[in-house]
Amino acid sequence: MADNSMVTLMAADHIEIQATLQAVKQCATLGTMLEVLDEQQTLGLPIPVLEVSGEALKKVIEWCEYHREDMVVETEQPGVAAQILTSLPQWDTEFFANIGDKDLLIKICNASNFLEIPLLLQYSIFVIAQALRGKSTEEMRAFLNIENDLTPEEEQKIREDNAWAMPQN
C-alpha cells in the first residue's frame, strides 16, 4: 500500500475516520498492526481503534496528518536524562489551545499513550502539567477527575513531610 493511500479507522463509538497511511504510521501501535496483518484480507476494512473515542481519535489523526512527514523520535531514551521541554512549536501550541475541553485533552493524552505516538504524548503531558501549575489541591482534583481517598491521618503526615520541603535557607 502506498503511503498516500487512505485508510479508515473505527473508534470505540463506531465513528469512522479517514486518514492517510503515512499519518497512521505515526502511531506505532497501528503501524505494527498493519505490518502483521494480511493486506489482501484487510484492504478496505476499517481498522478498529476500540480504546479511543471518535472525538479523541479525530484530534489525534489531525495531529498525525500535520506531522506525517516527521521522523518518529523517541522522547525517552535509556540512560539519558529526558530533555526538558520548555515550550511547544507554534502549530502545536495552537492545536492544544483549540482543544479547550480538559476532558478531551486527557483523552488525547491517553490515546497517544495507547497508540504509541511519543511526541504527541510528550506534548499533551506538557500541556496538562502547564495547566496544573499554580493550582490548589482541590483545583487539581477537579481538573484530573480524581476523588480524594486520603484519610485525615494520612493528610496530616503528608503536611508534616511537606513542611520540610518548603523552601528554606
Binding site: Q122, R133, I158, N162, A165
Partner: peptide, 26 residues
C-alpha cells in the same frame, strides 16, 4: 490518567509549591 503518565506529568512541575499541592490530591 494511568500512573506511568502521572509520573511524567509531575516531572514537568518544577515548583515545590505545585508538588506539595499534588501530594494532597490522593
Amino acid at each position: 490518567l494511568p500512573p506511568e503518565l502521572l509520573v511524567r506529568i509531575v516531572s514537568f512541575l518544577p515548583s515545590t509549591a505545585d508538588l506539595i499541592s499534588t501530594r494532597l490530591v490522593n
